[in-house]
C-alpha cells in the first residue's frame, strides 16, 4: 500500500476515534481528557514515524537485544 493512503487512513482512524468518543469526552474530567488526547497524539506520531521509516527499530529489537545472550546460553536456535 502506498504511504499516502496509509497516512490518510490513520488520520481518518484518529478523527473517527475522536468523534466516536465525543459525547463521553465532553463529560470526562480534565485529566482523562488530557490522557485521551495525549494517547491519540502518541498514536498519530508513531503512525507517521512507522509510515516513513518502517524499519525503525522497535520494542522487539530492544527486548531481543537484552535477552538474546540468555537464549544463546540455552542454545535455543
Amino acid at each position: 500500500m502506498n504511504t499516502a493512503g496509509v497516512l490518510f487512513g490513520s488520520i481518518v482512524v484518529v478523527v473517527l476515534i475522536f468523534l466516536l468518543e465525543l459525547p463521553r469526552f465532553r463529560r470526562a474530567e480534565k485529566k482523562e481528557k488530557t490522557v485521551f488526547l495525549v494517547l491519540l497524539a502518541l498514536g498519530m506520531a508513531l503512525a507517521v514515524v512507522l509510515i516513513y521509516f518502517p524499519d525503525v527499530p522497535g520494542p522487539t529489537q530492544l527486548v531481543h537485544y537484552i535477552f538474546e545472550p540468555l537464549a544463546r546460553v540455552f542454545k535455543l536456535e
Partner: peptide
C-alpha cells in the same frame, strides 16, 4: 475513554 486510543497503539 482511553480504550480506542490504546487500541490504535
Amino acid at each position: 475513554l482511553i480504550v480506542f486510543p490504546i487500541g490504535f497503539l
